[in-house]
Computed example of a mutant assay.
Amino acid sequence: MPIFSSQQKFLLKLSAVSCSIALITGCANNQRDTFTFTADLPPNFAYQAVAVYVPAKSETCTVPGGRNTEVGYNMKWRESYTPNSEIPMYRRVSGCPLVIWKIDLEINSSYGKQRGDFSGDFATVVIRDEVESKYRSTFDETGESVFYGQCQWLFRTSGKPRILRKILDCKSTDANGELDRGHPFSAYTLSQLPGKTVKMKITLAEVERPAIGDTWVKVPDGWKRCMGDNFEDQYAFCFGNHKDFSSFKMVDGRVCTIYPGCTE
């Protein structure tokens, strides 16, 4: 067993006390000044979040140009993604005390291997000093609040080769999956959030549908693309012609006549 001098023992005790104080203070600050945002998403989905801050109540200061009043999370979601984001409730920028105002969310997913083969839709978390009870989300006994949504892939063709593209459409739902109006959304008061967890839970609809009406015809094995006036017709509405169809190209280069199976 090592032998310490009286001075060494004093320094060790001082260090231990300092660490304990730091831990306690850190926990207190965490409980007081931050909350966690997280998401339960379908496979190959990710979210981006931008926390937006404004001058705190009764403050008359401003931030020049509004610079540095937003903080991003998972902005490079393709390279690095984490579902949990610890979000400060208060910041000070250019000497101005700021408070969180909202979180702008983007729900993203890729449908191909190229960088442009992705789509996203938005969701919002609103934070105010006061929120009407009918709009205010609540927390359970564990300190977690969940809001829900469902995303659906919409497909269309683009360009002269009629390349298949997908659009992600996300709507709000209740806890049972019943579709609601608008995009996924929740609202909280500032006093609700310290030390709590806000979770966005998104499901993916099993069925895809055309992004534009009267451009595809449903057949037993999927969907067939209407020809329109000719292959160069970028709109190519069916207009009742359910006999003349065109091929289209998948993002992986396959030339297909039916979606999603490609070949009939």
Rank of each mutant, 00 (worst) to 15 (best):
T34H: 09
D104P: 01
C238E: 07
N29Q: 15
E144W: 04
T138C: 03
L168Y: 01
A175I: 10
C96I: 05
K9P: 01
Y235V: 12
E130S: 13
W223Y: 14
G213R: 14
R67Y: 06
A56K: 07
D140Q: 07
L23R: 06
T197E: 12
L14A: 13
R67C: 03
I127N: 04
P2K: 15
V251E: 06
P83C: 09
G95N: 06
R92F: 03
Q192F: 09
R91N: 11
F147D: 05
C151W: 02
I127T: 05
F231M: 11
F139L: 12
Q234H: 05
D117R: 07
Y148R: 02
A236H: 11
T157R: 02
Q8V: 02
K13Q: 05
K160P: 00
R225H: 14
S20Y: 05
R136L: 13
D174A: 08
E206P: 00
V125N: 02
N68C: 03
E208D: 14
D40P: 00
K199S: 12
P2D: 09
W223N: 03
Q7S: 13
G26K: 06
G182E: 06
H183R: 14
L12V: 03
R128C: 00
S109Q: 04
S246C: 06
Y235P: 01
G213M: 10
G213A: 11
N44P: 00
T173C: 11
F155Q: 08
P55H: 08
L168A: 04
I167T: 14
T203L: 01
Q114P: 01
P64K: 09
E132A: 13
S15C: 07
Q114W: 01
F231V: 12
N68Y: 12
D117A: 08
F237Y: 13
S133Q: 08
N29D: 12
H183W: 06
Y53A: 08
G159T: 07
P161T: 08
K196Y: 09
V207A: 13
D252I: 11
K57R: 13
F237H: 12
V131L: 05
Q192A: 13
L14V: 05
V125E: 01
I103P: 00
T203S: 15
E208M: 11
G95V: 09
G261H: 08
E141K: 12
L193I: 03
S172A: 14
K201S: 15
F245V: 02
R115T: 09
N29V: 15
A49P: 01
Y90W: 12
A211S: 10
V126A: 11
T62W: 00
K199T: 15
K113G: 05
V219R: 07
Q192R: 09
M227C: 11
N44S: 13
V207M: 08
G177T: 08
G26S: 10
F248R: 00
F239S: 07
S109C: 03
D229R: 15
I107M: 03
